[in-house]
Structures are given as structure tokens and as C-alpha cells.
Design a protein around this nucleic acid. Structure first.
Lengths: 155, 155
DNA sequence: TACAAATTTAGAATTATTATTATTTAAAAA
DNA sequence: TTTTTAAATAATAATAATTCTAAATTTGTA
């Protein structure tokens, strides 16, 4: 944990116990938590922690490139603490998210008309599919899956 | 416009003047409007139109696969009325969105471990880059670009 | 230790979206 | 054409996620 502390001090990140708790929670985490997910966790250790602190810290981490934002959900922001670039696959039935560790950049040449307008920087792929649990359940469709579908974890 | 009317009746879509106005606005539209963008437009023709109608109609169109949702913005939903599958490129400075009409599917083979867990259905790529106007402006960074940056349209 | 700047908290405010309900209307039936 | 009825509309309230505010506290440094 010492490297963590050093590292963040270096980038001008003032370390408070709350922030440290958030960093601990995020370190090595391969889920895609929302601010609320994090807030609940931190509250176990710091019962007085506020949402503002969670949002502030997340924003600071995003600004510093230490955490990215996953654009999969139009309802709420999901954060991705895993540092290496990767893509995602989302179950269209239950919204479960998986990480896809493969670099497709070589295959992703942009058309000329786009290259005239944009200087490319990076790319991110959302794959959509049906997870094993939802394949088992079969073709039944629910109105709002992510809330209730058995067998699939919330994302 | 007649085909539009027939088409939507066929799929069990009750046609009201408000909906027709929304359909007219969306037809051939290559922008990525929010519900509010659409609401403002429709209000010019139907000053009493309500947000609920806009959302209801959009949801009905999304459910029927006539309109898709673009996952680029965690603040609000953006809709994409252009019917053919395509990808997007987003300017990381001003948030301008461009359409990328190229099918990369052949190159996007998923790793085996993912294929064990998910049956793939489709994919969508977000390219990120810097648009020509923002390249001109150069390295200056603003806190919230999309609101003010000159030369770049709002997305 | 003392200080300045940054951070925290609680709560209010804001914004996007969804839900509610009485009224109206489109489209099918008579 | 008129009647019927199921669905859609509009106004408004409700909800949920996120941001803002301001006073109190804390961090890292001098």
C-alpha cells in the first residue's frame, strides 16, 4: 500500500483516510462499480463519508487517468479501476459486464473521410451478447432485466 | 411520408400528429439528439407537446429497433435515428460526434474465454480523437468543453 | 507548531427521466 | 358515419443520479 500512497502524493493528490479507503477498494478491482457501489463499501469503514467525497475522488482519479469511465449505461456512471486498456462485453439480457483483454487496434483503421476530420487517439469496443445464465433461461424477455433476473449478478 | 405512415401502422404503432412530427424530425437525421433536442424541435410545431410524449415515442421506437441509443454520454441519453449499423467517433475536446460507416466485424473475434461465457450478438466501437477545429485551437484544455468551445458544434 | 490550501460533510439544488392520472384521440367495429 | 375502446397525450408530481454550497476540518509544508 505504501507505493500507492507515494504514487498519489507524487501526482499532487492529497491523501485523506476516505480517499485511501476508496483507493483500497478500487485496487485490483475488476468490477465496474457505480458511485453508489463505492459509497456503500466505504460507508462500512467511514460511516460519515458523503457522496460528494466519493464523486470528488472519482472525478479526481478520472482526471488523472487512474480510473476510466465505462460508457455502457445511460442511467448512471460506471467506473473502471482496472488500469490496462481493454474492451467490454455486455449481456443484453441481464447487463452483466465482462472484460475483453485483446487489442484490436491494428484492425481498426478509420475510413479516409473520418481521418480528414479527426486525429484518432484511442478506441473502445462494446461487444453485446448473451451470457451463459441467460442462454439457459432462454428466450423469455423481461421489461427491466437488470433488477431481477436470477442467476446473473448485477453489473 | 406516406410510406412512413404505412410502415409504422404495420408494426402496431398508433400514429398521432405528435409522433408524426417526431418521425419527420428523425427521418434522415444524422445527428445524435437528446430527448430535449427533439422536444424543442417538436414544440415549434406543437407548442403543447410534453416531455413524456417525446420519451414515450422514443422508447417505443427503440423497442421496435427503429432508433438506437448511443452510449457516449453519461449525463443524458442520445438517440441515433440512422437505421444502418455504424460506429462513432467522438472528439475528446468538444464532444462532437461523427458516424463511422465501416463494418469491422470480421476483425473483432472474441477471445476463447469470453466465447465460453457469452454468445456474441453485435458490437459497437467508440473511436476517440480530436476534431479539426479542436486541433487548430491546440492544447488548451477547458473544464467543460462541450458547453463553450468555439468552432465545434454541440453534439 | 502554525498556516494556507484543499478536502470533508450535510444538505440543498439541479437535471434527466419516469410515473400518475384525468382527458383526449386514433383506429377498428358496428 | 357513428360508436367504441384501447392507447396516447399533457400536466404535473415523483424519483434518482449527480453537482453545488458553505461552514468546519484536515493535510502537507514552511
Amino acid at each position: 500500500m505504501k507505493e500507492l500512497i507515494e504514487k498519489y502524493r507524487e501526482i499532487g493528490f492529497k491523501l485523506t483516510p476516505q480517499r485511501l479507503a476508496i483507493l483500497r477498494f478500487l485496487k485490483g478491482n475488476t468490477s465496474h462499480p457505480t458511485a453508489e457501489n463505492i459509497y456503500r463499501q466505504i460507508k462500512e469503514v467511514y460511516p460519515t463519508v458523503s457522496f460528494a467525497t466519493v464523486y470528488n475522488t472519482l472525478q479526481a482519479l478520472v482526471d488523472r487517468g487512474e480510473v476510466t469511465e465505462v460508457t455502457i449505461d445511460s442511467q448512471k456512471r460506471h467506473f473502471d479501476p482496472y488500469p490496462k486498456p481493454h474492451h467490454h462485453i455486455i449481456c443484453i439480457e441481464c447487463n452483466k459486464i465482462g472484460d475483453v483483454f485483446k487489442d484490436y487496434s491494428d484492425a481498426l483503421k478509420l475510413p479516409k473521410n473520418i481521418l480528414k476530420e479527426f486525429k484518432p487517439v484511442r478506441n473502445h469496443i462494446n461487444f453485446y451478447g448473451i451470457c451463459r445464465e441467460c442462454q439457459k433461461i432462454g428466450g423469455i424477455k423481461y421489461g427491466n432485466m437488470s433488477k431481477s433476473r436470477a442467476g446473473c449478478r448485477e453489473f
